[in-house]
Design a protein around this nucleic acid. Structure first.
Lengths: 165, 165
DNA sequence: ATCAAATGTTTTGACCTGTAATCATTCGCT
DNA sequence: AGCGAATGATTACAGGTCAAAACATTTGAT
């Protein structure tokens, strides 16, 4: 009977850890915003454009694991502030290609940290076995949470580049 | 020299896993919203009130690890929809006490899942050693990300109940 | 040629989240 | 008693995030 309680406790512990991680991640993003004027998601989108060149919204969305709508709103802000330039593709007028402006390129020369420096320092102090264990556990959780199994790496194979991030 | 690259790769992997986890968590919250009409944060606040009784905003905020402002906005929505009732404390008119309404109590009788059922099912299938490893890793990461070390459990000891979540 | 389905993007609407500023009260000192 | 500091809550503002709806365009089938 107490076994159910036990299970509940276990999930609660996971929930608590996850919430702390999510909160810390968000706080870091806010911090980066104050320091360098761009949030982590904005930087990630910028990096994706740098890596992929003139790229469609959908490609960015896949690459950074965000919905198309989210990427659009991030692009709006980035374009307002002149970090990227959007141009409609001439051959297919549905698609929009995004490029970095000089300002956009400039802000990336000295990439601000996407991850909390505090965390990185402490993480690096761990021995590599521990680090591997942690990484593996995180990936395991991510997989467990993935929408559907069967295709851990979905056979999108639609010419996508490595969907890093 | 390729050692730096290696480190970078490692952090990138962590970042990717974290982003997927955060995204999945958010998606689950949206899903819960569609199914039961309340998001996970709203449920968590409701549960905190159920557990703590007539409680101040600050206490809720501590209990659920969210800022006071965030709790206020969540309470706004919950009060608008008549799940909670706020009353100013008579002895100290600065403080606001929140209580569940009948409707609020009712919605909690069959607590909707705070965690993705899909995830829970798959997680339960793992052997307990693996599960322990995962939980430990998550807590390790949460600690590594905590604002300051030295006081893993900060000596708040201000009569708080267990700050679960 | 035409019209429906598919595709790519943006808009809309709802929520979560935090910091900083503001408001109201209470407390502590003199 | 009175005034400034501390405390509790809310508001204002800036983002992130998504699903669904709305648009625009292209493609495919007739």
């Amino acid at each position: 009977m107490g076994e159910q309680k036990q299970k509940k406790r276990e999930f609660l512990d996971i929930l608590v850890a996850l919430r702390q991680i999510i909160r810390a991640t968000d706080l870091h993003s806010k911090h980066v915003m104050k320091v360098c004027g761009l949030t982590v998601p904005q930087l990630v989108v910028l990096l994706a454009i740098e890596e992929l060149g003139a790229v469609t919204v959908r490609q960015i969305s896949k690459h950074v694991s965000l919905s198309q709508a989210t990427v659009t709103t991030i692009l709006n802000r980035l374009e307002d502030r002149n970090f990227v330039k959007r141009t409609r593709n001439t051959t297919d007028k549905r698609v929009v290609n995004s490029c970095l402006t000089d300002k956009g390129r400039a802000v990336l020369v000295d990439t601000p940290p996407l991850m909390d420096g505090h965390f990185m320092l402490r993480y690096e102090k761990l021995d590599s076995a521990k680090r591997a264990e942690i990484l593996e556990a995180l990936q395991e959780v991510a997989n467990l949470m993935a929408p559907e199994e069967g295709t851990p790496i979905p056979p999108t194979d639609d010419g996508e580049l490595t969907p890093l991030l």
